Amino acid sequence: MLPLLLIAGAAGANLAFLGLGSVFDYPDVLAKPAQEVLTQFHANQFVISALFLLLAASAALMAPISTNLAKRTNNPGPIVPLGIAAAAVQVIGLMRWPLIVPFVDDPDTFHALSTVLGTVIGETIGYALTAAWTFLVARRSGLRAIAWPAAALVATGVLIPLGVPGADLANFLGYVLWTAWLVALTIKIIRTARPRRALQAA
């Protein structure tokens, strides 16, 4: 079950990012004026909304992934609450696109929604919680050489609202590395499970 969740999370996030980058110029589009963002969104809102739903679903998988990971360690610590919190805030931020933005035409309203649901909740808090969760899981499951740099780069996302140069690129690279870590973690879990099955069958 856990390997499937990890692969689904990594694959879903990458497919959504690739699709959004292609049809919506995401995330660079967020730096454009609100009216321009709305115009681009409404021009292809059904496809864009579907891709944000996929991205939100991938983020939501952090919750069941966390509960499954906790079952594999004697001292899970705050892995589960951190994972659930990280999943929740990201889903809240992302779901504004398919649920609210299609009905918004006013740039000021859109800017307020993007600031509260996007920048503050979904992104800033989401980046911090995801980075902390990744660091903690890596301490207990290994693969720190991949996970800890990924967590550090993801955490740079909290600097994006402050206008720190390069923070957005560092955050993007962090998520690429983060999904690679999910795949590597999947491979490790599968490999460690094989000897146990062999012993049980003996």
Rank of each mutant, 00 (worst) to 15 (best):
A132W: 15
K188W: 03
F110W: 10
D108H: 05
L129W: 04
I79D: 02
A86P: 03
S141H: 08
I189H: 10
L113F: 07
P76E: 07
A85D: 03
G142F: 12
W97M: 08
V120W: 04
G126P: 10
L159H: 07
G126T: 10
T130I: 15
A57M: 11
L117I: 09
A86T: 05
W133I: 08
A57W: 09
I160R: 08
G166K: 14
K188I: 04
M62I: 00
P78M: 06
R72D: 00
G118F: 01
I189R: 07
R139S: 15
I92R: 09
A57D: 06
A167H: 03
L182E: 08
P64D: 06
L153I: 14
K188D: 12
I121S: 06
L169Y: 04
S141C: 00
I121K: 04
S58Y: 11
N74A: 15
I92Q: 07
I100L: 12
G166D: 15
G93W: 02
L117H: 09
L136W: 15
T124S: 10
S66N: 13
A63K: 01
H111L: 04
T186L: 12
T67I: 01
F103S: 07
A184K: 07
D108K: 01
L117E: 05
K71R: 14
G142A: 12
T179S: 11
R144M: 12
